[in-house]
Design a protein around this nucleic acid. Structure first.
Lengths: 189, 189
DNA sequence: ATATTATATATGACCAATCCTATAATAGCA
DNA sequence: TGCTATTATAGGATTGGTCATATATAATAT
């Protein structure tokens, strides 16, 4: 499971609390692996049971204890093992394509309106994605080595390339719908 | 939820049993929305409760009854409504990128081996995807109108375009790793 | 002075999806 | 004759993830 191993990955850099981990996720990998706060805490508990991480509890009066997690040797091994494993090919789950698949039921004008709307949404997302490297530059410099940064930027590049491909696809689809070189909408009531 | 609406979509074409629906999913939308058999049955039960579909139970001696589901008017309305709705932007969940993000921990040779392996897997998947239209040609002709087929093929085209972009990205990453124009792997024990 | 945000952990309820299993008859094949 | 695939429905257990909420203090902003 990826959440588990992402946590191991972060703890491999440096010991962290659950709270710190949440911030680390939000600042870097959340583009391809968002993490829920409560899930992080529960997963940390599981990882501790499994012996892959260990806790140092720092008591503080009148406040919840600060629980700082660090990787054990077993955890390091597990991380290494998972990183070199070939993951089973994911089967995609893309709600938007379900809409496209059944779009024939709608009129061409309705479909065009929807496609344009989605294209617009995508363009905005792409623009935001392009800005991420600059925005997180300070954080990147502070936190990561050049090597770590290289792979971070690789993952960002992936997201951008995929979004560009999505945009190209939808723009092409719009053109085809406008040119009416697709089968006409027949007998709609 | 997309499973619900995909079922409504299929039942909008023609009344079907849970079993038929499973076959319909596997023959078409499973590329972007795989459906578990038991989940289809459970969802049909929920949809019936909600009044979006209705059942005609055909009793047969000594066998489980054949339950044929069809869309109600409320179901048709719901489907139309959902098809024209703007879905909230999904946040991706890509386990493979978690591996990439933490790959810095491995040696360049290990990383290259993994990337090549993934590229190979992708190329095989792409080739298979290219063959789908021909393979399902008979089914498509039998089942769908030209208009329905158009949108079906659009969804296939999406998958192919995305996979091509993924492949281009990973091939570029491999080149960069080979050219060593990325930061070197420092002090690995 | 007051309200909000940040720090920090944790539980309960819930949901979609997966996996496994049970049932039971028929059709086709070896 | 016996084996497997097909037709057909369905429930239990589990997992991964989400949402809401509770608690409690310090720092910061209005």
């Amino acid at each position: 499971m990826s959440l588990e191993h992402a946590i191991l990955g972060f703890l491999n850099y440096i010991p962290l609390t659950g709270y710190d981990l949440k911030k680390a996720f939000d600042a870097s990998v959340h583009h391809f692996w968002p993490a829920d706060q409560s899930q992080i805490y529960r997963t940390l508990a599981r990882l501790t049971e499994q012996g892959w991480v260990e806790v140092k509890v720092i008591q503080r009066e009148n406040r919840p204890p600060r629980r700082v997690y660090s990787l054990t040797e077993a955890g390091q091994e597990e991380l290494r093992c998972w990183l070199t494993s070939l993951l089973p090919p994911e089967d995609a789950r893309i709600p938007w394509l379900v809409q496209v698949f059944f779009a024939g039921l709608l009129s061409d004008d309705e479909i065009l309106a929807i496609f344009e709307r989605v294209a617009k949404q995508l363009r905005a997302k792409l623009q935001r994605a392009h800005k991420i490297p600059e925005e997180s530059a300070a954080y990147v410099e502070a936190v990561g080595s050049p090597r770590e940064t290289f792979f971070w930027m690789l993952t960002l590049d992936y997201r951008i390339k995929i979004m560009e491909a999505e945009l190209a696809w939808i723009e092409d689809a719009i053109k085809r719908l406008q040119r009416k070189d697709q089968p006409p909408a027949e007998q709609q009531q």
